[in-house]
Simulated assay, not measured.
Amino acid sequence: MHIHTVFFWLWKTTGPEQIRQFETGLDLLTRDPNVLERQIGKPATTSRAVIDNSYDYGVVLKFSDLASHDAYQAGEAHQLFLETCANLWSKVQVYDIENDA
């Protein structure tokens, strides 16, 4: 199992129309046929010193293996998302996990 976790910080000047564009882009992106499970959300309201909730959106995607993840990365949906939405974020951070489950 390959778990792909991505956090996005949008530009502070991002308006409602651009946010809708970003949310639509995330929805389409995460419906790629290589994705087994998907979670999209905003930071939880938890508050502890070890929690970073400074991001605007987080995405967690599960793939059967690294090859499926790599196919997703090269796929049309991912490329379209980058072309249409990359200008909306000031920072992106990715954490990938390999799991034997």
Rank of each mutant, 00 (worst) to 15 (best):
T24H: 10
F7W: 09
A71Q: 03
G25D: 14
I97N: 15
E98K: 06
G25T: 06
K62S: 15
L66F: 02
G25Y: 13
V35R: 03
K12H: 07
L36Q: 01
H78T: 05
D32R: 09
H78F: 03
H69F: 05
F22E: 00
S47Q: 12
W11A: 11
A77H: 04
T13F: 07
D96H: 15
R20D: 10
H69N: 09
R31V: 01
E76I: 14
A67K: 14
I97E: 12
S64T: 13
G15R: 04
A74L: 02
Q39F: 10
V60G: 15
L61K: 11
C85P: 07
A44V: 07
D65R: 07
D96E: 08
E76R: 09
N34G: 13
Q79T: 12
F63K: 00
N34V: 00
S68V: 04
A77M: 02
T14H: 03
Y57G: 10
D27N: 13
H69C: 05
N53Q: 06
A44Q: 04
Y95D: 07
L80A: 04
H2Q: 05
V59K: 01
A86L: 00
C85W: 01
K62H: 14
R48Q: 15
T45I: 04
G58R: 00
G41E: 03
H4D: 11
L82D: 06
R38H: 02
D100M: 09
G75E: 05
K42G: 09
F7D: 08
Y57D: 05
F63W: 01
A101Q: 12
W89E: 05
P16E: 03
R38G: 14
A49T: 07
T45R: 11
L61T: 10
V50R: 12
V6A: 11
R31N: 12
H78G: 08
T84M: 02
Y55W: 06
E83V: 02
R20T: 06
D56S: 03
M1W: 11
D27Q: 14
Y95N: 06
A71E: 13
Q21G: 05
L80S: 08
L36F: 09
T13R: 13
A77C: 14
T24N: 15
A74N: 14
S47H: 13
K91W: 03
L29P: 01
L80W: 11
L88M: 09
T30F: 00
T24P: 09
A49C: 10
G58W: 00
A101F: 15
G75L: 01
A67D: 10
Y72R: 08
A74G: 12
S64G: 15
V59I: 07
L36W: 05
Q18W: 00
L28G: 15
T13G: 11
W11F: 09
